[in-house]
Design a binder for these strands. Structure first.
Length: 223
DNA sequence: GCGACAG
DNA sequence: ATCTTGTCGC
């Protein structure tokens, strides 16, 4: 891992060419993994907890869940989020005894200043299909999304469609979906929708968020 | 040059 | 991400 921002940007530029973001999934996914990270402090130096929850499709029952505790050694810089979260998430992924068919990341894929967001990084690193579902806008612009579940408008950045603003529930703000690696726009959108049957965010993200939060609380209190 | 800026 | 009160709605 890079030690500073300059090295990180260089690494992103070197790896971005390995990204495949226009291919459909090789087969219908059976196991989908949600990943998330919780922080003790907003800045670097504090403890962090990474969590991965694998769900069965289509029933969304839990297949396996793992966590990993560590320290945050990279500051938050827009565009460099992956360098904060990838290490802890990889250590958690190593504990899995099952191999997910796709990773659902908390953040962006190719909808990124250098087309290499967190989902691209995790996908290229693990060799697994990965896409991102973000809660707030980052790069690009989009037209208002019709207030209907499943409706979406393209997220455009520098003339390219890099993702979609997707309404997962009527009456709630849209989420932002973008392919990361070995998956395309349609499969990413379809999966996000299948995972967000009741709430705004995919069930994978919600479960991983809770698990990482619980794991961090536990780590901070016991030791 | 001035803001905006995933989590 | 995280820190937090009250409030609207099913």
């Amino acid at each position: 891992m890079p030690r500073d921002a300059a090295e990180a940007v260089t690494l992103q530029h070197r790896l971005r060419h390995r990204v495949v973001s226009d291919a459909p999934l090789p087969a219908p996914p059976r196991l989908v993994a949600g990943l998330d990270v919780s922080y003790e402090s907003s800045s670097a130096g504090g403890r962090i907890a990474g969590a991965v929850v694998v769900l069965h499709l289509p029933d969304l029952s839990i297949a396996e869940s793992v966590t990993s505790i560590g320290t945050c050694d990279f500051p938050y810089v827009p565009g460099l989020l992956a360098f904060r979260e990838v290490p802890i998430l990889l250590s958690a992924l190593e504990k899995l005894t099952v191999t997910p068919d796709v990773l659902v990341c908390d953040g962006y894929g190719i909808a990124h200043p250098r087309r290499f967001g967190l989902a691209c990084f995790l996908g290229v690193t693990t060799g697994l299909p990965a896409f991102g579902v973000a809660k707030t806008p980052f790069v690009g612009t989009f037209d208002e999304v019709p207030d209907e579940r499943g409706a979406f408008t393209p997220l455009v950045h520098e003339g390219e469609t890099v993702g979609r603003a997707l309404r997962t529930q009527r009456g709630v703000k849209p989420v932002f979906v973008s392919p990361g690696h070995l998956i395309d726009m349609d499969d990413s959108t379809g999966l996000a929708l299948r995972l967000a049957l009741r709430y705004r965010l995919p069930e994978t993200t919600r479960r991983a968020d809770r698990l990482s939060r619980d794991a961090l609380r536990e780590a901070l209190s016991s030791a």
